[in-house]
């Protein structure tokens, strides 16, 4: 079931997990033998985005397709550190304060660019490996009413966590599918409530070793 409330235990858990795991894993990495194969990798993925906030869904009711580019460092056979840029554009229509005859609504657009730093962990080196990941992100967002023109923008820090499966296609080429959760605060919205621009994404991508 999709959770539609604004409660956010998951981001806190993801942050806690990152804080606990990363130093331990980094220490183990220093001591462990260097992994075989490519140390650096690049990945690209796309998918479907579902906003968690009901208010976002009420305005931006059309399907949205996030696109993410990733550059990572394989610090251990099972552990990656990576940076990513994730772009998302939502489109919809304004909503009205109260129902009234002959009321107007206007097309609106929201663009979100999230710069991410994360760590990924894959269990096993087989052809199919379950993976977990988490990290922090900084989201730059811009909302505009193209017809007016009217726009506003801002930026806030958020967190994300992902879980999925990695399928090895070749020695340094993987197919990755992930369910990605993000919590991206947007600050105070026009109706006086805090806005969460985050949501759930189901993505499919490829990852290739480059060095």
């Amino acid at each position: 079931m999709i959770r539609t409330t604004e409660k956010k235990p998951l981001p806190a858990a993801a942050l806690l997990l990152s804080a606990l795991l990363l130093p331990t894993l980094a220490a183990r990495t220093m001591a462990a033998p260097r992994p075989e194969g490519s140390q650096l990798f690049a990945a690209v993925s796309a998918g479907y985005f579902h906003p968690l906030s009901g208010e976002v869904r009420a305005i931006y009711d059309r399907p949205a397709w996030p696109l993410e580019l990733q550059l990572g460092w394989r610090v251990q056979p099972r552990l990656d550190l990576y940076a990513a840029a994730r772009f998302l554009q939502l489109e919809g229509k304004t909503i009205l304060g109260a129902t009234q005859e002959s009321a107007e609504s206007y097309s609106v657009r929201l663009q979100l660019l999230a710069l991410r730093l994360g760590a990924g962990f894959c269990a096993g080196n087989g052809p199919i490996s379950p993976c977990l990941g988490a990290g922090i992100q900084y989201g730059f967002f811009k909302e505009e009413w193209p017809a007016v023109p009217l726009k506003t923008n801002g930026g806030r820090a958020g967190v994300f966590a992902a879980a999925g499966v990695r399928l090895r296609l070749a020695r340094s080429l993987h197919l990755v599918t992930l369910m990605d959760y993000s919590f991206q605060p947007g600050g105070l919205g026009s109706r006086g409530k805090q806005v969460n621009l985050g949501g759930l994404s189901l993505t499919l991508g490829v990852r290739a070793g480059i060095l």
Partner: peptide
């Protein structure tokens, strides 16, 4: 005069009829 406020996430504007 009747007025109606339209909201997006961060912006709102009023229309007066």
């Amino acid at each position: 005069a009747r007025s109606q406020v339209s909201f997006s996430l961060f912006l709102s504007r009023k229309t007066v009829y």
